[in-house]
């Protein structure tokens, strides 16, 4: 569930930001997508995406732990 939430929120919030940018710059959707996701020269992509990926892994882990817990509770 956490993973689903993670992916859902990530995609939809990116979409939201892209829609706003589209409106602001009068660009097409894909142009804005490309434009938004290429980060500034000063930004360090590795840090940004590492953080995001740790978030993803954390949600995997949390899901795994919770499902394990649930199944154990069912058994007992």
């Amino acid at each position: 569930m956490v993973t689903i939430a993670f992916v859902f929120i990530l995609i939809s919030s990116t979409l939201l930001s892209i829609l706003l940018d589209m409106h602001l710059y009068n660009l097409s959707f894909f142009q804005t997508l490309h434009f938004s996701l290429t980060l500034d020269a000063g930004t360090r992509e590795t840090i940004v995406f590492t953080a995001l990926i740790t978030g993803l892994f954390a949600s995997f882990f949390l899901d795994y732990r919770m499902s394990k817990k649930e199944s154990r509770e069912k058994r007992s």
Binding site: M1, V2, I4, A5, F6, I9, L10, S13, T14, S17, D21, F35, S36, L37, L39, D40, T43, V48, A51, L52, T54, G55, L56, A58, S59, L62, M66
Partner: peptide, 30 residues
Amino acid sequence: LELVFNRPYRAFIYPMAMIIAFMSIIISKN
């Protein structure tokens, strides 16, 4: 999220915090 996905909200904290950090960067160019 707790209400929609039926999980304690503490489970969502870390992943969502990372999304917000990510969002705060891609939200605008400058």
